[in-house]
């Protein structure tokens, strides 16, 4: 089931995410900024996530959401977001400068 979900999300990322999802990307991704640093370039113990491969980000978020990857708080966070939002955030972050 996870695999199907990832495939769907990645399909969205690679084909150019649905317009509504992409339109949300900047605001949804603002949620990341509070901990991951301005421009998502990292802050102290919290990793930079800017400029990473969109597939890598989406896969990680899907795994956190499915409880298949342990996190300090990301597992709790990922459960609040939809496939479309994960795709949009991944696409947006991938486009940022590292």
């Amino acid at each position: 089931m996870l695999r199907t979900g990832v495939a769907l999300v990645l399909g969205g990322v690679l084909a150019g995410a649905p317009e509504m999802a992409a339109a949300q990307a900047p605001l949804v991704a603002e949620g990341c900024i509070g901990c991951h640093g301005p421009g998502a370039r990292g802050s102290g113990s919290v990793a930079g996530i800017a400029g990473r491969d969109a597939r890598e980000i989406a896969t990680a978020l899907m795994a956190f959401r499915a409880g298949e990857r342990t996190g300090t708080i990301m597992n709790r966070i990922a459960k609040g977001y939809t496939d479309a939002e994960i795709a949009a955030v991944a696409a947006y972050l991938a486009g940022l400068r590292r």
Partner: peptide, 16 residues
């Protein structure tokens, strides 16, 4: 880790 991440949050959000 959460204590460290708390410090990271403070730095991050205040720079934002």
């Amino acid at each position: 880790l959460e204590a460290l991440h708390a410090d990271a949050w403070y730095s991050s959000i205040t720079r934002d």
